[in-house]
Amino acid sequence: MTSHSKPAVRTDSVRKIFKSGDQTVAAVDGVTLEIHRGEFAAIAGPSGSGKTTLLNLIGALDEPDEGKVWIDDTEITTLSRGQRADLRKDKIGFIFQSYNLIEVLSALENAEFVLLLQGVPPSERRRRVTEMFKKIGLEGLENRRPHQLSGGQQQRVAIARAIVASPSLVLADEPTANLDSATGAALLDVMQELNQEIGTTFVFSTHDPRVMDRASRLIRLVDGKIEDDH
């Protein structure tokens, strides 16, 4: 962890309100935090504490009702939809709880998808994805479609997709929730390795104590507010 480096993510009094009938609920309620480059940070908390909403706001998937969010030096709350799409493509990698691979593409094509959007030439794409597959133990599975892979393998492909474009930030929403403990642990090993080797910033949400133990920083959310950050 490089706590004195420039922040990769910064939020300032971020608030997100959801309305349900006459009731309004602040899913994220005035969160201010800084996550520095190279951190392996976990956002923890019970269900409904606002973990996913906070990740969505950091990932430029959603807009806060109040407050500001920066990725590197870019204030994302002022960006248009298209600019936010570009920012996600160029700076953020996503890992989802339910893998979210594209059914019609092979493992290799899924992994190179972001590179494809970035316009990286085919030979370079292949080289980077093949290297990544070797690193995370997916060699030989390149041509399989998602339904031909196990849950753990699918999540590895999702990690490869998130990492291979060298984003400055990877956001992972409960990445091990659908995996058995052994597979989950192996996957965390991979993520931790990449964090240490490449220096990619990881921010993930979790309520699994085994995952929290791996984090270099733990941010606890309760009712949308930071209760603890250490």
Partner: peptide, 15 residues
């Protein structure tokens, strides 16, 4: 819807 949402997450433009 979920797939389109994923594509948007990955940086695909709405257009």
């Amino acid at each position: 819807k979920r797939e389109f949402s994923l594509l948007l997450c990955l940086g695909m433009h709405p257009w």
